[in-house]
Amino acid sequence: MTVEVDPSPQFQEYAHPEKLVSGEWLQAHLGDPGLVVVESDEDVLLYETGHIPGAVKIDWHTDLNDPVIRDYIQGPAFAKLLGDRGISRDTTVVIYGDKSNWWAAYALWVFTLFGHPDVRLLDGGRARWEADGRPYTTEASTPSPVEYPVIERNDAPIRAFKEDVLAHLGNPLIDVRSPEEYTGERTHMPAYPEEGALRGGHIPSAQSVPWAKAAAEDGTFRALNELNTIYREGAGLKDGDKVIAYCRIGERSSHTWFVLTYLLGFKGVRNYDGSWTEWGSVVRVPIVKGFEPGAVPTL
């Protein structure tokens, strides 16, 4: 850790309190050497309308996705991206964004594929920062480029591919999409028709826990006891479970991956980023429609 962790008492109940910072902490540490703040949003222009002073922008479409094949960028591109943003391997990175940090969690997950040692989320993202009346600026950030090493991405610990999911059946799966997508009534998220699939429904045995249940009204994460109620009592997760979370392209499930891994302390949680846009279009994979999770298929 280059920069001290936020000692706020509200984070101490989580398994990894060092992964979160509060607005109060961040405002007090803006400009600290060794700290870079990154904004990552669904709306590609939101940063330009005003951002946390000194923050740099990383966009999931245009920066983190490979422009040709369906994958994330490789080590050299990641090194250039981060180096250009003034981030070196020992930099403490705090990410925040719109929509309860949905996309910020996705960016954090991609940073984790590259094993960036210290990357945290601003609890509550843009919404809470604004609600607290904290400052924004439209002044462009001009980071001095630094060297970031070329790191080979290590997908296996936190990323699941379709074959991994097939081999995982019988272990817990969490479907974080809307109920309409889970039941198969819709093949895409309400208002995202372009990210559809050919069939509707869910992966057999997956429990439905829409991602936003983990976020409170102000965009911050819910308290530990509420999260336990949702994921342990509600979805039946137990200590020692290996969990795979999925959604439509892996962004909403990054949020759930963050919650399960860093707040609840589950080990070996993976995000299936192929998600429903892959599963719902693949020939002959098993699918269940309706509200019931369905039985584990024998393959």
Binding site: V44, L45, D59, H61, T62, E194, E195
Partner: peptide, 10 residues
């Protein structure tokens, strides 16, 4: 298209 991504331009 390049600035905002093809998906968004739709």
């Amino acid at each position: 298209t390049e600035a905002v991504s093809p998906l968004r331009i739709r």
